[in-house]
Simulated assay, not measured.
Amino acid sequence: MRVIEIDGGRGPAEALRPAERPDPRPGRGEVLIDVRAAGVNRPDLLQREGLYPAPAGDSDILGLEVAGVVSGVGDRVARWKIGDRVCALLGGGGYAERVVVDARHALPIPDTLDFVQAAALPETVFTVWANVFEAGRLQPDETLLIHGGASGIGVTAIQMAKAAGARVVATARGADKARACAGLGADVALDAAAPDFDARLDEAGGADVILDMLGAGYAQRNQRVLKPGGRWVVIATLTGPLAQIDLMRLMLKRQVLTGSTLRARAPDEKARLTAEIERVVWPWVTSGQVRPPIEATFPLPDAKSAHLRLEAGAHVGKFVLTV
């Protein structure tokens, strides 16, 4: 099968190159998927740079989410059969024509979605569910503040929070991106590059939950606007990992600061998340309430271009590779 490898094991986008590898075979509890589309995510860039290695036992091939057709079924798999359309969360291996995955980590593709749309869902939906709804405990009528609202995670978080009945404040760099966030349903959309950004953030009324992909550069802002009893969830540190925290404010306002990653979680935990997402989020997907915009698609051999576009940061939504 064709795959994308990193020449030398790590490097810039130009190090991505097509290669051939043996076809995988499904083991016990696994399904083989003929990949039709694979999502491109920021963790792929980090892995390519040598900063986010695959967990032990997972493929060294990039790619954390795919959509395709089941073409093989291992022992003790009862739910899926050959020909089923599925999308799946992976520990790695998505930049390939075929991939094996724990059958419990796959979800049915609704008839209303094509493969490209479906491939843009697993990594972002799982991340938002685990961090906003489980760690952040977002409730209807609460306010979710999303930094990086135009990113793949951000656009999905806007839609999921609105589907759950929450109020959304989204920030993004540039007026065009802020308008895109508003178009996706954000109640307040702020241009983080505007000179009055801090004043407008304060005027937005505070947040019960903050989904933070930026880290150190926004730490003091986040503590200032987080309401008493608010939950601040960190999932990336694009402005740096070392932040100054006012511990007295943390105590007086009963603020909760937490963070997580998704990829290294145990298979049983990912299976639990899959079941919860199918129960709660998949009806939103089927109805069209959650449908992240696709910025662009690229054929699998041109994964380099997708990485360059993602690194440039001018996008709204997701990039997807097609097979």
Rank of each mutant, 00 (worst) to 15 (best):
residue 96 A to E: 13
residue 165 G to C: 06
residue 63 G to N: 12
residue 256 V to L: 08
residue 110 P to Q: 13
residue 252 L to W: 09
residue 323 V to W: 00
residue 175 A to W: 04
residue 72 G to R: 04
residue 321 L to P: 01
residue 279 R to Q: 14
residue 117 Q to Y: 04
residue 58 D to C: 14
residue 124 T to Y: 05
residue 142 E to Q: 14
residue 149 G to Y: 12
residue 136 G to Q: 14
residue 76 R to N: 01
residue 133 F to L: 04
residue 68 G to E: 07
residue 171 T to V: 01
residue 40 V to S: 05
residue 136 G to K: 00
residue 257 L to D: 15
residue 106 A to W: 10
residue 62 L to G: 02
residue 5 E to I: 12
residue 56 A to P: 09
residue 147 H to I: 06
residue 133 F to K: 01
residue 37 A to P: 00
residue 240 G to F: 09
residue 2 R to C: 08
residue 287 S to R: 09
residue 307 H to Q: 11
residue 130 A to T: 09
residue 109 I to W: 15
residue 23 D to W: 09
residue 316 V to S: 02
residue 79 R to P: 15
residue 51 L to P: 00
residue 274 T to L: 01
residue 229 G to E: 12
residue 33 I to F: 07
residue 38 A to I: 04
residue 210 I to E: 01
residue 224 R to Q: 15
residue 65 E to H: 08
residue 214 L to S: 03
residue 200 R to E: 15
residue 287 S to M: 09
residue 299 P to K: 03
residue 120 A to W: 07
residue 31 V to N: 02
residue 211 L to Q: 02
residue 308 L to S: 12
residue 222 N to C: 13
residue 12 P to R: 12
residue 83 G to Q: 15
residue 164 A to M: 14
residue 228 P to E: 07
residue 76 R to E: 10
residue 288 G to F: 00
residue 107 L to W: 13
residue 280 V to F: 07
residue 54 A to T: 01
residue 99 V to T: 14
residue 78 A to W: 08
residue 166 A to R: 11
residue 307 H to V: 05
residue 169 V to G: 02
residue 225 V to Y: 02
residue 24 P to M: 10
residue 234 V to W: 01
residue 301 P to D: 13
residue 296 A to P: 07
residue 151 S to W: 12
residue 41 N to F: 03
residue 134 E to Q: 11
residue 188 V to K: 08
residue 99 V to E: 10
residue 284 W to Y: 04
residue 115 F to Q: 05
residue 321 L to K: 08
residue 194 A to T: 03
residue 136 G to A: 07
residue 302 D to T: 07
residue 196 D to A: 01
residue 262 L to C: 04
residue 185 G to A: 14
residue 39 G to T: 06
residue 301 P to L: 04
residue 211 L to N: 01
residue 272 R to S: 06
residue 293 P to T: 09
residue 91 G to S: 11
residue 46 L to G: 04
residue 173 R to N: 08
residue 21 R to T: 10
residue 64 L to E: 02
residue 202 D to Q: 15
residue 21 R to M: 14
residue 97 E to L: 11
residue 37 A to M: 10
residue 85 R to G: 07
residue 152 G to R: 00
residue 140 P to I: 09
residue 101 V to T: 14
residue 244 Q to M: 02
residue 237 T to Q: 05
residue 172 A to D: 00
residue 200 R to D: 09
residue 127 T to V: 14
residue 189 A to F: 05
residue 215 G to D: 09
residue 53 P to Q: 00
residue 35 V to W: 00
